[in-house]
Simulated scan of single mutants.
Amino acid sequence: MKNVMPLLLLCLALAACKTNPFTGKKTLNFYGNSQIFPMAFAQYDQFLEENTVLEDTEEARKVARVGRRIAAAAERWLDANGYPGYLKEYQWDYNLVKDSTVNAWCMPGGKIVFYSGIMPICQNETGMAVVMGHEVAHALADHGAQRMSAGTLQQIGAVGVGVAVNDPEKRNAFLQAYGLGTTLGGMLPFSRSHETEADRIGLQIMAIAGYNPDEAAELWKRMKAQGGQAPPEFLSTHPSNDTRIANLTAWAPAAKEEARKFGVTTFE
């Protein structure tokens, strides 16, 4: 069993690779759209039933308007780069929910929610495009499925440790060490890499949609000004605000250059 488990993990990883269209890299993904999307759509519908959706307001209309532009820009990029039909199973939907939490998200398959608490930080449609581009990028790059796949591997590895160590006390110690090691050395860096990737992809998409990518760093400066005690970056699922601000500032010129390939030369 000790020899079989590493081989099993390797076989699973090799058999479950999918190409990220934005980076060209192979990514770990055990789950196809046909598995993920129905679950995501059902959870989304349940969330809307349990929360107050703000409809027929100017801010709600802005969320939908920005969302449509971001989705169209993503499709333009994918079609132009050899991925026609990549979004055919997506069912785009954009909603603003009454909640003071500073948050927004996009489920696999294009189901998007903005919380009213993030709107003052967005300030305008360009700020909303920063957030929308980032959240949509998570969905486009299959980050949700990748996190589920990584979690599956982590659980399989834990089973392997449990089987390999016979002594109960040693097994508990090994499992604790395994859990800490795989979280700090694997899952958290994995999550931070997804956030960084979504920042970069989102910047590109918002620029193609005609929004000014220079404003992304400004939004994160406003986010930083909200204060609050953040954990050290190595203990967090997200890069620090300072890291994000520096990255977004450095990447903005390249995002504009990419947008120019699509005839976009002015940004709002």
Rank of each mutant, 00 (worst) to 15 (best):
Y178F: 15
G185D: 13
Q46T: 13
A64I: 05
I201N: 01
M223F: 14
Q155V: 09
I36K: 07
E59H: 09
F114W: 05
P189Q: 10
D167Y: 06
W77M: 12
N241V: 01
Y83S: 11
I208S: 01
P253S: 09
L219N: 04
G144R: 02
E49T: 11
E59I: 10
F190P: 06
A252K: 06
A164W: 12
F114D: 05
E197L: 07
A173R: 13
A137S: 06
R76D: 12
C122G: 02
Q146P: 03
Q91T: 09
S191E: 10
D79I: 04
Q46P: 04
H134A: 00
W105Y: 15
P21H: 11
L248W: 02
I121L: 14
E195V: 01
H134E: 00
F30V: 08
K25M: 13
D199R: 02
V136N: 00
E49W: 04
R244H: 04
A250S: 13
T126S: 11
T27G: 08
E89T: 10
G202K: 00
T52C: 05
Q154D: 14
E49Q: 14
L188S: 12
A74N: 03
H238K: 03
D167P: 06
A15E: 12
F41W: 08
I208T: 01
S100I: 04
